[in-house]
Amino acid sequence: MTVNRPVDWHLLVSQLLNGLQLGLLLFLLASGLTLIFGIMNFINLSHGAFYMVGAFVCATVVQATGSLLTGIVLSLASLLVIGAAVEWLIARKLYQNDHLDHVLVTFGLILVFDTLAHIIWGPAGMVIPLPEILNGQVRVGSFVIPSYRLVIIGNGLMVGVALYILITRSRLGMLIRAGASDRDMVTALGVNIDRLYLVVFAIGAAMAGFAGLLIAPITEASIGMGNEIIIIAFVVVITGGIGSVQGAFYSALIIGILDTLGRSYLDDFLGLFLSNQAAETAAPALSAMMVYILMATILVFRPQGLFSPSGLRK
């Protein structure tokens, strides 16, 4: 099966776009995680639950009203509220605690959110129906690209740029940057630190929800969908360096593209050294491991990840 065919440029470009799309989704999740960890020193496993809730709320609203836009707006609004509530009721009490406590509490939150979703929306999962135009394809020259994939890429880039502007140009962004590198200093400046934490947590939750509602038309809203991706989002955070949004952006793109290219070309590549049978067995295993191998390798040479805000606690 693994013939040495010439490089198919069409295929390569579509795979790069697919990788970009995956990377941007990972970035939406990871940027919230890295901020929450970088600023509040809080490990939030339940971030994936926000991703799931975003998808479910959007699906419910779209199915009821038929308007995708209403779905998106209401979904994001509800996540700002849920994110703020989780911060206010639970996370806030635990910032001073051990990381172990964070892991335990947020795992408990995952169970609560997942089971509530099961009770509210049933086990079957929900689709977000797309307008006809988004269910089709776009032709650029001889390229045919599913149009919804372009929507994801466009939105991902848009949020990325908006976040960049927010962090580099606004007062909130300045506080966030300062908070990620030196928390005590921000407090010393007389900033209402509680409110800063609340806002960061809520924004992080909304971004996770946005990622969830973006992916749902491709997959669907389903229980536990966030638990499947949260680990990879953590890999992105770690590889990029905790607390660094910039690092999260680059490592998300690297991981998204590497993962996609691995799935596309690894069997052909291994076929050069191994028998077809062996390549067929090894390729899926190796491509599943690839992001972990990448992370471990980077950590061996840079134990603090690719980009690490200076002065961050270990």
């Binding site: 099966m1 198919d8 069409h10 295929l11 579509s14 795979q15 697919n18 990788g19 799309q21 995956l22 599913p146 994939r149 992916i215 491709i218 997959t219 638990n227 499947e228 991706i229 680990i231 990879i232 996609t260 799935r263 596309s264 069997d267 067929e280 390729a283 899926p284 491509s287 599943a288």
Partner: peptide
Amino acid sequence: VGKDLTKWGKDRQLDFSAELAKAKA
């Protein structure tokens, strides 16, 4: 002409863009 085995289990792969692109090609 081609065969893809995708990641399965708890963090199973649900985005098949790469595989569909290969199948098409």
